[in-house]
Simulated scan of single mutants.
Amino acid sequence: MRLNEDPVAFEAFYRRHVDAVLRFVVRRVNDPHLAADLTADIFVAVLDSAHTYRPGRGSEIAWLYGVARNVVSAQFRQSAREMRATSRIAGRRMMDDNDLSRMEERIDAERQMRRALEAMAGLPEGERAVLELVAIDQLTVTEAAAALGIRQVTARVRLHRARRALENVASPSAEYVEGQV
């Protein structure tokens, strides 16, 4: 079939089979808008796959019903995915403009902490670990030492080195980290 190359042939094919396709669809869906959309989708699929029709394998209508079945099945699968996605978010409130404003305020408020974390990323692991526990997680030096399994004096030395390293970074985050002990 050369339906995609010959508009007259496609029109004749469409007129011959549109009622049968519509009956096929409405037996499977109960929404008239969806039935119309699926019928149109079926004929678009026919244009895309007309080259696969082999008369020796069956009639045009049998082939067309195969195409229709695939299109309708794809729609059912898509609907099922959408329902699963909807059920996952059911009961959750979508973000509105006020939520977005609050989110922007939080992002701005945490800007200093992000700068501090970026500066801390360049520190040796031991120094960074003590500094994170003290400055970010609000542990005392003694608690940080216990959490890391090191002596308290080692934790103090590492904290001192980390602070000195951060002093070289010109940002308010160093002041924030300095005041946390």
Rank of each mutant, 00 (worst) to 15 (best):
A165E: 04
A129V: 06
L64A: 00
M113L: 12
I107G: 01
V21R: 08
L100D: 11
A50T: 04
L117G: 08
E143T: 13
I61Q: 10
D48N: 15
H33D: 15
A174E: 07
R16Y: 09
V71S: 01
R158C: 01
V29T: 14
T39P: 02
G91C: 04
A80L: 12
S173H: 04
A147Y: 03
A40M: 08
V181T: 13
R84F: 05
D37C: 08
R115F: 11
E127N: 05
R77D: 04
V134A: 01
R111T: 10
Y53F: 15
R115Q: 12
V18E: 05
M103Q: 11
L123K: 06
A35H: 02
R106E: 10
S49D: 12
T52D: 11
A146N: 09
R164A: 10
R81M: 08
Q138R: 15
A144C: 05
A146H: 06
P7W: 13
D31G: 04
L22G: 03
L38E: 07
E104H: 05
R158G: 03
L159Y: 06
A68G: 03
I150S: 05
E143W: 07
A36Q: 15
E167T: 05
V130T: 07
Y14E: 05
Q112H: 08
D41M: 07
A36K: 15
L38D: 03
R57A: 14
F13T: 06
F24Q: 02
A80C: 03
P32M: 11
D37V: 07
V130A: 09
S171F: 05
N98C: 08
R128I: 01
R93N: 10
V134R: 00
A62Q: 07
L100S: 08
L133K: 05
R2D: 15
A119E: 11
D41Q: 13
E60A: 07
S59M: 11
A68E: 00
A116L: 14
A121G: 12
L166V: 03
S101W: 08
A162T: 02
W63C: 12
I150T: 12
A74I: 07
G66F: 00
V18L: 02
F43R: 02
T140F: 04
D99G: 06
V8L: 11
E110L: 15
F24C: 01
R114Q: 13
P7E: 14
H51N: 08
A50P: 00
E167W: 05
A170C: 07
S59L: 11
D37T: 12
A145M: 01
T86W: 02
L38G: 03
V134M: 01
V21D: 07
E143A: 15
A74G: 11
I42R: 00
V8P: 01
L38N: 07
G179T: 09
E60V: 07
M1L: 10
